[in-house]
Design a protein around this nucleic acid. Sequence first.
DNA 1: AGCACA
Length: 446
Amino acid sequence: MASVSSQPQFRYTQPPSKVLHLRNLPWECTEEELIELGKPFGKVVNTKCNVGANRNQAFIEFADLNQAIAMISYYASSSEPAQVRGKTVYLQYSNRQEIVNNKTSADVAGNVLLVTIEGADARLVSIDVLHLVFSAFGFVHKITTFEKTAGFQALVQFSDSETASAAKNALDGRSIPRYLLPEHLGPCTLRITFSAHTDLSVKFQSHRSRDYTNPYLPVASSAIDGSGQFSMGFDGRKVEPESNVLLASIENMQYAVTLDVLHMVFSAFGPIQKIAMFDKNGGVQALIQYPDVQTAIVAKEALEGHCIYDGGFCKLHISYSRHTDLSIKVNNDRSRDYTSPVLSSQPSVLGQQPVPIPGPSTHQFEGAQYASPSDQPVIHQPSAGWATSAAAAGAPPPPPQSMPMQQHNHPYMPPGTMPPQPVPGMMPMQTQTGLPQSAAMPPYSH
DNA sequence: AGCACA
């Protein structure tokens, strides 16, 4: 079949066009360089660079045909060839009359990232892991995940394009750190472009979509009932069905964690009905009961993997309990029913302060949470913005800071004396983290 | 060094 314009493709005399075709450009030539090149001859109204398989071709479109002719004519008789960064550039009239800029949305920065997770086990990456990874760069508003021909993909919504760009720059082409993934998973590489979306629509909290700005969203039945499609947890086991009761285990318990401390930490997300603490496997665990599943989900989401005290001490691991209503027989320092006025009001547990067990010196993680791949997976320790009032409230030196969501509380006061909680919240905790930038780099290998 | 898309 003859092509539409059945002329030989390469010839020395193209019919004039206000669009010029350039080749042999240096790699990653910019629009600015093209404009500089054409400016002496007229008004450059459009450019397109990084064209072709080698991305070393480009187009310049002038406002007027005569300007294009002027440029071609000049270099046709010039002893100096057209150059960009010292590299000779070959010019000719394009065989088209205008540049069509199919600027894909992937090229224009937006606040929503399109993330493709590559790897054999890509679809086993949980939305929680994605949330963790991207939260390092700022507050993640929403995440949706879906399967396309491209594979397992996610849309991740940030507040603004600056934050999204920072995340994209740091993570594109890198792999999710191994310690964030279940052990049996292979490498999972992130390919990131900008999405054209600006605001994702998340109707339900589910295993495939989350809206972190709205803790009261209904929870999709698929995430609760026996559909079996629960995302993978950190340890690679199926995550339990959501429940209003959380099971928290405390790792690296350098300081005593009292019932009141737990109450304080967990009540940031909503009223707590009951807490029961017990020893298991040489560690301390606690069951925390909220009135509803949604509150528990938010609390779990925000607290999982975080430490009650700075320095990686008393790290929380949270799962959903199979319980829905705890049976508290007696209020003591290990169990408490906050809904029962008869049982409560034992003064003995009030006003407790964290007691250093071995008394380690405190050190901060700051933004370096990604720098220690072996342990301490993801600890968002806001390095600024609070701690002053808490420290001044009489807490002993070792744990100078506490959970970020307690910002407006005095952490070690009896619950009843605390000021009213603001929004139960994950908001403050992710935002203040600061960009990890170089600190985030090591574990993300190419 | 030779005409763009995704």
